[in-house]
Amino acid sequence: MSSSSRRVVATGFGGPENLAVEEVDPGEPGPGQVRVSVRAAGVNPADVKRYRGPGDPARLPLVLGFEAAGVVTAVGPDTSHEAGEEVIVYRVTGAYATDLVVDETALTPKPSSLDWPEAGGVLLTGATAWHTLEATGVTAGDTVLVHGATGGVGLPAVQLARLRGARILGTASERNHDLLRELGAQPVTYGDGLADRVRALAPDGIDVALDLVGTDEAMDVSLALVADRARIATIANFERAPREGVKLLGGGPGADPGDDIRAAARAEIARLAGDGSLRVLVASTYPLDDAAEAHRQIATGHTTGKLVLLP
């Protein structure tokens, strides 16, 4: 294959100014592998953390991106896939690229009803949200408090919890309250007095709390309102979770990565997104050359919906 394939790399540790696009030969797929022409790659906070640094210069350049969607263009020996298939790719490293060679175990069929940006951005946050619900045992009749309900993981968490028959209270800024109502949740403004506002809406109590923001407020309010600490989960408060005895989930030190749960959920999440039960809200799309701009935007922490690169 020609070296016309391009990918985004971090050439140094620090901020988005270290991102560059380089030409690369992705190579041919080996046994059990396929090559995918990438149509969309999801941007996630974890991508920014990967090179925030400081780090070991011997690891540079770092490839970025954990999820994508595209079309199979070549298959290696012993694969069950064919060229021309539309697929979602998760979890991989180096998804910010025009072409990827991946193990076929990373592939999920793309529903034809999903457009490329949605398909490229559905699985990482969707699988993370699924893991938080599994870990806390969310079921019909539960009342669930979601901190950061209109963030990247919050949006699928609200919808997936609703699909399980739970009642959802979600914290968000005023401008996102209508969106939460559309998704079937009751919005609550975060900030001073949050616990009292939640108690007023849910006098019978909160069964489960999901901290998707990592603030002390989210942790304090969760501890105050949920009796069983095994039903409080955080993906962001690495400092306090072990001390408070709540579940720490995800990719950081001491966290339960839930790899098996997340992998097993992929097909169902794709199906729900394909039939419209799970809405994938795409905030903005960027060309590969503007990956640094996408990272500046996601680092603000105020994006509602997914940011997606379109190679």
Rank of each mutant, 00 (worst) to 15 (best):
L123Q: 10
R229M: 03
L145W: 06
A292N: 03
R91P: 13
A58E: 15
H81S: 10
G250K: 00
L124A: 13
D256F: 05
A172K: 06
D56C: 01
P57F: 09
H302K: 13
A224W: 03
S3L: 15
S277V: 02
G184N: 12
G30T: 09
T125Q: 14
G151A: 11
L169G: 05
P257A: 11
R50W: 14
T125M: 12
A10D: 10
G15P: 08
I269L: 08
P156N: 03
F66E: 05
G12T: 04
D47I: 13
V153N: 01
T98Y: 09
Y286S: 05
V63E: 11
P117D: 07
T150N: 08
R91Y: 14
S80H: 12
G250C: 00
T108H: 05
L307W: 00
Q297H: 09
E23D: 15
E85W: 07
A46S: 15
G251K: 02
P26C: 10
H147C: 07
V208G: 06
A149H: 08
I232K: 09
A161I: 10
A106E: 11
L163V: 01
L194V: 14
G254R: 00
R279H: 15
A283Y: 06
I168Y: 01
A157T: 13
A227E: 10
V138C: 04
G191K: 11
A106D: 01
D103S: 13
V198G: 05
A227P: 06
A20F: 04
L223G: 00
A270R: 00
L145C: 07
D142I: 11
L223W: 02
G205Q: 00
L180G: 01
G151R: 13
A185G: 14
R7I: 04
D260F: 05
V72D: 05
G152W: 08
A200H: 13
R181M: 09
G258D: 07
L201Q: 14
L169R: 07
V246N: 06
L281T: 14
A241N: 03
L180M: 13
G214R: 09
L210N: 10
T139L: 11
T285K: 11
E28H: 12
P26H: 08
D228V: 07
P156F: 00
G254Q: 01
D103F: 04
R6E: 14
D207K: 05
V144R: 10
I168W: 06
T136V: 02
A10K: 07
V226Q: 03
Y96K: 08
G274V: 09
D25K: 08
G15I: 03
T303E: 15
E23A: 15
G42H: 13
T304L: 06
W116G: 05
T136C: 02
A224Y: 02
R229D: 04
S4C: 12
V48I: 03
P187I: 04
L223C: 01
V72S: 02
R50G: 04
R229Q: 12
T304H: 08
A40L: 01
P156Q: 06
T132V: 11
A119R: 05
I88D: 00
D259K: 04
A270L: 09
G193Q: 08
S37D: 14
V63G: 11
V144P: 03
Y96Q: 07
L179M: 07
